[in-house]
Design a protein around this nucleic acid. Structure first.
Length: 274
DNA sequence: TCACATGTTAATTA
DNA sequence: GTAATTAACATGTG
């Protein structure tokens, strides 16, 4: 479910618990989301620690606790973070519940493609520091994109945009949104893009990331209560999810098909193959 | 019952 | 060896 800005949206929910101690931890021992430690070990390490702060990078979240304890969370396909009352009874899919005096921080994930990672040490874990430079960082240059498109030249551009090693945080809907704005057909091979098209692609990557963060992570202190509730109808986003909808720019019917192994939505009217 | 799902990765093929 | 494609993961929804 969650991509770049949606991950940030969920992380901010848990930031309600910054500065407060974890007094108890509830886990589902048999859930498959604990990827690098036994569930009971994670519970033990977090109990008594104070949640200090947190951050997101790509689709990853990292929560820093006192005593050199770190908790990584990936939401997979169906994960979410919530804040519930202190006495909240864990539901079937609530695989991690961090109890604080005034609230419970809940990680829920029905499909269990998500990940809960514990790290103990003075510095953040390697998997975190090795995440590719953010699309909104200065390191994300046109050349950075062009080099990668050349290396992945025989794959459809849609598939290439989903590769986290160069486009961290981009998921299925963001990739479609970027290609729609750049007027590029999703099945175009990465090596077929002209320098001008690569420049446009680069610009739209940044535009979509910035916009998604604006609408999902809030601007001027205004935080959406529901995911994507402020996404404008001028974006493909509000039109891409079912058959029979129309392109907000051309009014023509959108197409949906599998490209690069994923359901893809595009506007044939202005995203032409070559 | 069947098709499908906003993600990642191991295994397979080219 | 590298790159591209496919299968698999586990569960819920319509």
């Amino acid at each position: 479910m969650p991509e770049l800005a949606e991950v940030e949206f969920y992380r901010r929910r848990w930031s309600a618990g910054h500065g407060a101690k974890i007094v108890a931890v509830h886990v589902h021992e048999r859930a498959k989301v604990y990827r690098n430690r036994e569930a009971v070990h994670i519970a033990k390490a977090l109990t008594g620690a104070k949640l200090l702060d947190s951050g997101t990078a790509a689709k990853q979240m990292l929560f820093r606790f006192s005593g050199g304890v770190w908790l990584g969370v990936h939401l997979g396909m169906s994960g979410e973070l919530r804040v519930e009352p202190a006495d909240y009874p864990p539901g079937k899919h609530d695989h991690l519940v961090l109890r604080q005096a005034k609230r419970s921080l809940v990680f829920s994930d029905p499909r269990m493609f998500g990940a809960v990672l514990l790290h103990e040490g003075k510095n953040p874990p390697d998997w975190w520091t090795k995440i590719a430079p953010a699309i909104l960082s200065p390191a994300f240059t046109v050349k950075w994109v062009a080099d990668f498109l050349a290396r992945r030249g025989r794959a459809p551009i849609k598939a290439v945009l989903l590769m986290q090693e160069r486009f961290p945080g981009v998921g299925n809907w963001m990739a479609d949104e970027i290609l729609w704005r750049a007027a590029l057909h999703p099945a175009r091979l990465a090596s077929s893009l002209t320098p001008k098209e690569i420049k446009t692609l680069h610009r739209e990557c940044r535009f979509v990331c910035r916009g998604a963060l604006k609408y999902n992570a809030g601007v001027g202190g205004k935080m959406p209560s529901e995911l994507n509730q402020f996404m404008p109808d001028s974006w493909l986003f509000n039109h891409r999810w079912e058959d029979g909808r129309r392109c907000p720019r051309t009014g023509a019917l959108l197409r949906r098909d599998e490209i690069g192994g994923r359901t893809t939505c595009w506007s044939p009217a202005h995203q032409k193959p070559r």
